[in-house]
């Protein structure tokens, strides 16, 4: 993937609509192209606060997942894609030269739409992150695994079967395992790409509880097309359409008193 840096002038323009807060992620004039014909993100300026849940909503194909994947550079895997503008995490441009992808992805964890446990034991799944990031002390890994499973509310269910295959878990458990796996890396930010869309309501409820619990320690950015879910768990919500950021505000305001007509039409279900 190609990264085209923005000019100095552009980067100084900042989006000041957002509330003053401890900003963790900021995008400046972000444009993303899957290929020259497909312009997926258009001039996104966004400031995401730390230790809060921020939800991206919008109709299918609006670019919310693409934007999410810009934050841990997963889009780099797509051949032919390129990006303009800047993405800053903790005020550092993650697309600058000399950024180590492995460290970025350790710091910015990701939970995918479809749970993707590795075909290994539960324990090994959670220990995967610490191991590939160079942790070799067995005792430390054991502690990390335990605390990650506890935070993901999975410890009670799995503590007696840690050596069983992760593929034997139920769908909801598998997704919480993926959350635990991400937590084991001790990230600062967790990206969640529709983490509950493939789950039944009870499993979804559990995941949501977990997310609210995690908010205390982590910055969470979640993509969802379930507006109720966004309203239930997020502190801030961004509404996107056709690659553009239409509105970004605190959740209550966005859902009760949106500034933009499009937002109102979408949340009241007139399209989408």
């Amino acid at each position: 993937m190609e990264i085209i840096p923005v000019t100095e002038k552009n980067s100084l323009e900042q989006d000041n609509r957002s509330v003053k807060r401890n900003e963790v992620v900021r995008t400046e004039n972000l444009d993303f192209f899957y290929n020259p014909e497909s312009h997926a993100l258009k001039n996104i300026n966004l400031s995401i606060p730390g230790k809060k849940v921020t939800a991206f909503i919008g109709p299918s194909g609006c670019g919310k997942s693409t934007l999410l994947r810009c934050f841990n550079r997963m889009n780099d895997l797509l051949p032919g894609s390129y990006l303009k503008g800047r993405v800053l995490i903790d005020n550092k441009d993650i697309y600058a030269n000399g950024i180590r992808l492995e460290e970025l992805r350790k710091k910015v964890g990701m939970v995918f739409q479809k749970s993707n446990p590795f075909p290994m034991s539960i324990w090994e799944n959670v220990a995967f992150g610490p191991r590939v990031n160079g942790e070799s002390d067995k005792h430390t890994i054991e502690e990390v695994v335990k605390s990650a499973l506890e935070q993901a509310d999975l410890w009670k269910e799995t503590k007696d079967r840690l050596n069983e295959s992760a593929l034997d878990l139920s769908g909801g458990q598998q997704q919480r395992l993926c959350i635990a796996r991400t937590l084991a890396n001790k990230p600062e930010i967790i990206l969640m790409d529709e983490p509950a869309s493939a789950l039944d309501p009870i499993s979804t409820g559990k995941i949501e509880e977990t997310i609210i619990e995690l908010k205390k320690n982590y910055t969470i950015i979640i993509v969802t097309h379930n507006m109720q879910q966004a309203a239930r768990i997020s502190d801030f919500t961004a509404f996107m359409m056709l690659g553009e950021m239409i509105e970004f505000n605190d959740t209550k305001t966005l859902f009760t008193n949106p500034n933009e007509n499009l937002t109102e039409e979408y949340i009241t279900g007139r399209f989408g």
């Binding site: 997963m74 895997l77 992805r105 964890g109 995918f112 993707n116 075909p119 590939v132 991400t182």
Partner: peptide, 21 residues
Amino acid sequence: PRANKEGALALGATQWQMIRK
């Protein structure tokens, strides 16, 4: 599965670690 490969990379694995594990 592509999901498994992406999952490994998202956990900070290098390309080679992802291939090997």
